[in-house]
Simulated assay, not measured.
Amino acid sequence: TIAKGIGRQGKEECWLIIAAEPGARLGIGFDADLDEAAMRAAALDGSIEHLLTWHTVAPGDFFYIPANTVHAIGAGVGLIEVQQNSDITYRLYDYGRPRELHLEDGVAVSKGERYARDRWHKSVAPRSSQQLVDGPLFLLDQVAGTPSPDIAARYPAALLVIPREGEVEVGGEAIAPGGCALVTSLADVRFADNGICLLARGCADAA
């Protein structure tokens, strides 16, 4: 699906690749700048798929997707998506499937621009603690084992815990990879010494 998810000022999101078949790709941004008329025409005739920049991916690739960036997930990609709190997505093109499109709203807010991969992409070591997003709309960290004091200080209140490897325990309940838990405090979470998980929270001053 080629889609642009937004709120009134746009929706920021990010993708951490956890599995990828050989040649798996993400479409983010365009090979050349498009104006609204060209984007609308490309969405109508299906050529928009071929105008996107397709990035070959591997496990550990991390992409931040700025608001109003047109993007698509290709076949053979497994990823974890974390985003600014928003329930709006504008779909420009859907490969002929019968889901609703939002062409005029989507074209109006989407940027027909190249994706600045050098700025927005990083590699994440598989068994490391690493800060992935540092606001202003949300925070995201990968944690190996129990969070260090500096990471814990970023999560003083409610947060999401997303296991990648190994289980975490919340209130006596095991949360396995593929699951997610909303907790009121890090003190409510028991981390496996050999586990890997993501921590995420929205920022209080986010619009």
Rank of each mutant, 00 (worst) to 15 (best):
E165T: 13
V109E: 05
K111D: 04
K111M: 07
M39R: 02
D150C: 00
A152C: 01
P66M: 00
D150H: 09
E36M: 09
S148F: 06
A37G: 07
E36K: 14
S86M: 11
P98F: 05
D45P: 10
L52G: 06
I175Y: 04
I65Y: 02
E169D: 10
D188M: 08
L101D: 01
L44Y: 01
F30N: 05
S128W: 06
L79G: 02
I80V: 15
Y64F: 15
I28K: 07
L34R: 05
V183D: 04
I162A: 00
G96Y: 07
L44W: 01
A176I: 06
L160F: 12
G5C: 11
P126L: 09
H102Q: 09
A206T: 13
A72Q: 03
S123G: 08
G112Y: 11
E36R: 14
L34A: 00
A153I: 04
P147V: 04
L137G: 04
T89A: 13
Q142V: 02
A37R: 09
R119E: 13
I73R: 01
F63I: 04
Q83W: 03
T184E: 14
A75L: 10
V161H: 03
G10I: 11
W15V: 03
H50V: 02
A20Q: 06
G179S: 02
G172W: 10
L132M: 11
Y115C: 05
A43T: 07
A144H: 13
A187S: 13
S86G: 11
A153N: 04
D87N: 14
G27S: 04
I18E: 12
G166T: 11
T56R: 12
T1S: 11
S123F: 13
A187P: 01
G135R: 07
P177S: 09
A38D: 10
C197H: 15
P66N: 01
T146V: 14
R25K: 15
C180K: 12
K4Y: 01
G23V: 14
F30R: 02
I88P: 03
Q9E: 14
I17C: 05
G172L: 11
W54Y: 07
R190F: 00
A157P: 04
D35C: 05
E169P: 00
L186R: 05
E173I: 15
A187Q: 12
D188V: 05
G27E: 03
I2G: 05
A41R: 11
T184Q: 13
A158Y: 03
L51Q: 13
I73W: 00
G29F: 08
R25F: 01
L44T: 02
A19R: 12
P156F: 04
E113L: 15
H50S: 07
G29N: 05
A24Y: 00
L199I: 12
A42L: 04
Q131L: 15
I151V: 15
N68W: 03
H102T: 08
Y90I: 02
G166A: 01
E173C: 08
G166C: 05
P177C: 01
R8N: 09
D87Q: 10
L16Q: 05
R117L: 14
T1A: 08
G10D: 09
